[in-house]
Simulated scan of single mutants.
Amino acid sequence: MAKFAIGDKVDKAPDDHESGIVVAVFSTTDGSYRYAVDMEGYGALQFFTEEKLVVHAN
């Protein structure tokens, strides 16, 4: 089961001042997940593995 869902606000794990909204979740052939995230300020989607994201801290 995926750790994040569409609409979740997330931060990039190693750099928690970059945040965005999950807009798509993809499962890979090996059973892991990739996330398309609309990062604030970029104007484009970025794709991340589950390990690179954390729940946004309010």
Rank of each mutant, 00 (worst) to 15 (best):
F47I: 13
V22I: 15
G7L: 07
T28Y: 03
S19D: 10
A5N: 09
H56K: 10
N58D: 06
D16S: 12
R34P: 01
V37T: 03
Q46F: 12
E51C: 00
A2P: 15
N58R: 12
D8W: 03
S19N: 12
E50V: 01
Q46R: 11
D16Y: 05
K12Y: 15
A5S: 10
S32H: 08
S32I: 02
K3T: 11
S19Q: 11
A57Y: 05
V23E: 12
A2K: 11
Y35F: 08
V25Y: 04
M1V: 04
A57M: 06
V55G: 05
M1T: 02
A2E: 12
F26I: 02
F4V: 15
V10R: 03
S27A: 11
S27T: 01
G31F: 00
Y35S: 03
G7H: 14
G31R: 01
D8P: 14
K52V: 04
S19M: 08
N58K: 11
D38V: 00
S19R: 13
K9N: 13
Q46P: 02
D16G: 10
V25F: 05
S19F: 13
R34F: 01
M39V: 01
S19P: 06
A44S: 12
V55Q: 04
A44Y: 13
L53D: 01
E18T: 10
I21G: 14
M39E: 03
V25M: 09
Y35K: 04
N58M: 04
T49F: 06
D11M: 15
T28K: 05
T49M: 06
D15W: 12
V37S: 00
G7F: 13
I6A: 09
V23A: 09
Y33D: 00
G41W: 00
D11G: 12
S19W: 07
R34D: 05
N58L: 07
V54S: 06
T49N: 13
F4W: 06
I6V: 07
Q46C: 06
S32D: 11
V37Q: 05
T29S: 07
V23P: 02
K3W: 09
H17P: 13
V37N: 04
H17G: 12
L53E: 01
K9Q: 14
Y33C: 00
S19Y: 14
E50Q: 05
K9V: 09
N58T: 10
D30F: 01
A36H: 03
V54L: 07
I21E: 15
D16M: 13
V10T: 08
D8R: 01
V37M: 07
H17D: 14
K52E: 14
V22S: 04
I6D: 12
N58C: 05
E40C: 04
A44T: 15
D11I: 15
L45C: 02
K3F: 08
D38L: 02
T28G: 02
E50M: 09
S19H: 13
A24C: 00
H56M: 07
A36S: 04
I6N: 09
M1C: 11
K3Y: 08
G43Q: 06
G43T: 14
Y42L: 05
A57N: 10
A24S: 10
A2R: 08
K12C: 15
V37W: 10
V10G: 03
L53Y: 03
M1Y: 11
I21Q: 15
E50N: 11
D15T: 11
